[in-house]
Every structure is written in structure tokens, then in C-alpha cells.
Amino acid sequence: MSTVWDPATLPADDNVDAYTFCVELTGSQWFLQKGKMTAYYGTIEFNGIGHGRLDRLVRTSFHSPLHASDWVVAEGSGKMLLADRAFDVNSYDLEEGNLTIRSGNLLAFQPSLALKQSIVPGFLTLIGTGKFVAASNGPVVFMEPPLRVDPQALVGWADCPSPCHHYDHGYMTGLLGGLRALTGLGGASGEEHQFEFVGAGTVLLQSSEALMPEQPTGAAPQQPGVPGGGAPGPQGAGPGTPRLPGQLGDLQRRFGL
């Protein structure tokens, strides 16, 4: 027989089991992604953000107005259970820190944290002091840079090591390498591309390569110099000169000709 919980025995701001997290509200507020509440005791109100009364809160701790419609503010007193498609959930504390996380993994956070869009598309950054809840496919492991990780296993990183792409060039370049990468003939291991982290900080990895579905993070402003902003740079970041007959362009570069 499994444990029977009631408001007195449910933990406050802690995990009930690996898949369910309990938040205690005492007149306070939490931001949560739409539809992640499974049950609650007490009186709790859920309000979509982006209208009058919560305007100030959104201004101070929510900086991604374009995807505000995916978030709600829970307000009131009682205990609330959060869960997400039976994935592992965990809470993390930030103290005057910063953490960047894949948008699909973030479930809920305290308003004392500020949520901002990361420059890296598809990621969100939390800044400040407070608690947040994140979901992952399998338990999360914490690693220290320098480190190269598989793109599908990356959940996020804290205290800002520098994230960049890494390719196994010895394997990828040259005529044969290009053929291998394009066709998979001759054995591509599927691990030729990694994310590389250097510097001081922590990298969070999930213990599977099954990605959580992406949540929209909102479009970045359409400005030159903004990654993912969709506007080309002033000089035109695209192909500079028109291609001459006989030139292969990207393919040519790929095959090292």
C-alpha cells in the first residue's frame, strides 16, 4: 500500500516522489507553465499573466513578454502538486546566481527569480535568488567543465561557462569525411558534434537522449546582431558574392575543395 498524503504530511517545497513536486503557498506567488498543476489543497487561484493586476510582477520577474501566454501565476494559500508527463522533477536553489535551461524543461519558479530569454535560441535564463522546478528525462547529473556533452542530453548550465559547438574535425573534413557526414557511409558514430563547455560553473545533464518537447521562448527582437532575430546583419550575413558558374558553394567548402 502506498503512502496516503494529506496537507499535514505533504512536504513543503519538496518532492513527494521522483515525479511529483509539492509547492507550499502562503499568500505567496509562483510562476508555472500552463497545465502542470495536477492537484491542490486550499484556495489557489491561477491567472494568466499579461493583464492588469499582475503587470508589476511580470515587469520585475518575467522578461519574455512574447511567450507570457504559456505561463500562469498561482496565488493563494495551500499546497499544490506539480508534475509533467511522468518525467523526473527536481527543484534547484539559486543564490545570487544564474542558470540557463532548455525551455521545455522548466516547470515553475519563484517570482524572486527573473526569467529572461537566453541569447542561445530555445533556452531561458533565470537570474537571482530563489527556487525553481525543472523536469528531465531521467535523473539529472551535475558536471564540471571543461566538458563536451551530447546536444540531446544537455539540460542547462549554471554560472556561465561558455557554451559553444565542437566538431570532430579530423573525422568530418576532407573528401572522405564529407561523404561520411553526408551519407553515413563508412560509419558515422552519430557523436561527431558536441557542445563544449569551458570555464567555471556547472553543467546539468539528463540521463537520456530523449529530448523534452520544446516550449516556445518567444521571438527575439528583429534586429541586426540578435541571434535568432531573423534579420540579416547590415552587411548581409548571407552569401556575399553571387555564385559563379562551376562553384559548389557550401558543398565545395564541405568537401575541402
Binding site: 502506498s2 496516503v4 494529506d6 516522489d17 498543476m37 495536477t38 492537484a39 491542490y40
Partner: peptide, 21 residues
């Protein structure tokens, strides 16, 4: 889908549940 959490409902503790869960 995932281990169920068993919640007790009593006179002083009514419970509200998401229909999908």
C-alpha cells in the same frame, strides 16, 4: 502514467484535481 500520488480528502481538507491527472 507514472506512480500515482494518493491524497486524502477529509472534511477540513477539500481537494481540487486537474481532470487530466
Amino acid at each position: 502514467d507514472g506512480p500515482a500520488v494518493v491524497l486524502r480528502v477529509s472534511a477540513q481538507y477539500p481537494l481540487t484535481v486537474d481532470p487530466g491527472a
